[in-house]
Design a protein around this nucleic acid. Structure first.
Lengths: 223, 223
DNA sequence: AAGAAATCATTAAATTTTTATGAAAGTTTA
DNA sequence: TAAACTTTCATAAAAATTTAATGATTTCTT
C-alpha cells in the first residue's frame, strides 16, 4: 500500500486527513512543520505528500523546492493544500513542482478521489520515462533508447528494467522483484534474477544497475 | 492516454494549460519555442499540439507548415491558440493545417471540452490514413493502397491492419487485438492472430508489421 | 585477520515458451 | 455451389527463459 505524508501545522486537519486516508488503506505518516516533513521524507520515502502551503517557519513551497532539488525524490507526488482565498496566480506559480492541489476546506470524498487519481495516474505515467544520461523507456512501444539507439529487450528484461527504473535509486528486494516481474505464483530459482540483471547490464550499461548485496538491486539515476 | 504538446512562450500559460490537461489524465509535454516544439515532436510524437500563433522566433504558423510537410506527422492534430485581437482573416488563412483554434484568455472548461472533442473526433476520422512509404488505408472503401496499387483486404485482415496502424510503433497486446478486432465475446485461438498477421505481411510487406514476442504486434512507421 | 559461509557474477547449455507457416477444414457470401 | 474468407491444426523455427556449474566477492565468525 502506498505511503502518504500529511504535512500541516494544524493538528485537527492532520487528523481528519489521516483518518480518511487510513480508512482507504493507505499508510499515513504526519509532520507538523516543514523541516519535520523533510526529516520524515528522508526516513521513509512516501509515494505522495499532502503539503500545506501556509505554514509557520518553512512553508510548503520551500519544502517542495528543497525536496525536488534532490533527484532521488523526483518520483514523489506532491499535492498542495491551499485556502480558497490564496489567489490562483500564486498557485499557478508554484505549480512547477506540484502534481495537484486541493483547496480547503477539504471534503473527504474529494480528498480520496484526488489521491486515488494521483496514485493511479502515476502507475500509468511510467509509459515513457526519461532517465539519466539518455536512457529512455517507452512502455507503449516496448522499447528502450540509449543515447538515441533503440534497444530491443525481451519481455522479462524489459519488465525488470521498467520496475527498477520506476523508482530510481531505490532498492528492490529480490522477493519484490519476483513478485512484480514474475508473479506471485511462479516459482523460479534466485539465479534467474541474476541472469536477467546480467543481460540488462550488457545491454543498457554496466553501471546503471547496482546490486545491494543481501537485499536486491537498484537503478542508478545520477552519476 | 493521448499525448499533448503545449507550445507557448509564456511559462504561466504553459503551466495553466498543462495543469488542467494533466488533471484530465493527459500526458503533457511542453515547448517554449517553435524549434523546441519541432524537436519534441520528433522525440515523442504527440496526438495533439496546442500551438501558440504569436511567438518570438519561429511562429506557430511556421511550425505548423514544417510539421505538415512531413507526411509522418499528418495524423497529429493541431489546435492554435490565438489572442482575440488577432484578426480572423489571418486565422482563417492558417486554417489549412489546423484542426481547431482557441482564443485567449483560455478558460479551463473550454480547453478541456475542445481537446476532448478533437481527440474523440480523431478516433472516428481514421477513415483515411497515409502511412509511411506509400501505404494508405481507407476505411470507407475498405481498401489499402501500397505504392499506388490497390490491395483489397478481407474484413478481419483490414481491421487488424487498421488497428495496428492507428498507433504506429505502439505494441498491441494479443488480448487487445482480440478484443478490438474479434470482440470480447468471440473465442478464437491465439494462432488465429498469427495467421492473419502472416497474410497481412505477404500482402502489405514483410517488414511493416513487427512482432514483439510475449507481448503482441506493432506496425512500423519508418524505415 | 583467516577461514567459513553466504551471496552474486558469468557463461554455456538445456528447456520452455512463443511464433511462423503451410495445408486443410469449416463458414460465409455471392 | 463455387469462391472467398476464417479458423484450426500440426510442425518447424525462433526466441526467450531457466537451470546448472563454476568462479568471484562480500560478510560473518572466531
Amino acid at each position: 500500500m502506498p505511503v502518504i505524508l500529511v504535512v500541516d501545522d494544524e493538528e485537527d486537519i492532520r487528523q481528519i486527513l489521516s483518518y480518511n486516508l487510513k480508512k482507504e488503506g493507505y499508510h499515513v505518516i504526519e509532520a507538523s512543520q516543514g523541516d519535520e516533513a523533510l526529516y520524515q521524507i528522508n526516513r521513509k520515502k512516501p509515494d505522495l505528500i499532502l503539503l500545506d502551503v501556509m505554514m509557520p517557519g518553512m512553508d510548503g513551497i520551500e519544502v517542495c523546492e528543497v525536496l525536488k532539488s534532490n533527484p532521488d525524490n523526483s518520483s514523489i507526488l506532491i499535492c498542495f493544500l491551499t485556502s480558497r482565498s490564496e489567489d490562483y496566480s500564486q498557485i499557478a506559480g508554484l505549480d512547477a513542482g506540484a502534481d495537484d492541489y486541493i483547496t480547503k476546506p477539504i471534503k473527504p470524498k474529494v480528498l480520496i478521489s484526488r489521491v486515488n487519481a494521483l496514485l493511479r495516474r502515476r502507475e500509468d505515467s511510467v509509459v515513457e520515462m526519461k532517465l539519466t544520461r539518455g536512457i529512455e523507456i517507452n512502455r507503449e512501444k516496448y522499447i528502450v533508447e540509449k543515447d538515441g539507439n533503440k534497444i530491443r529487450l525481451p519481455r522479462k528484461e524489459f519488465e525488470l528494467l521498467a520496475l527498477l527504473a520506476s523508482r530510481p535509486d531505490c532498492v528492490f528486494k529480490r522477493e519484490i522483484i519476483l513478485e512484480k516481474v514474475w508473479g506471485n505464483d511462479v516459482i523460479v530459482g534466485d539465479r534467474t534474477i541474476d541472469v536477467h540483471i546480467r543481460k540488462l547490464r550488457t545491454k543498457v550499461g554496466e553501471n546503471h544497475i547496482k546490486t545491494v548485496k543481501g537485499v536486491g538491486y537498484k537503478f542508478i539515476s545520477n552519476q
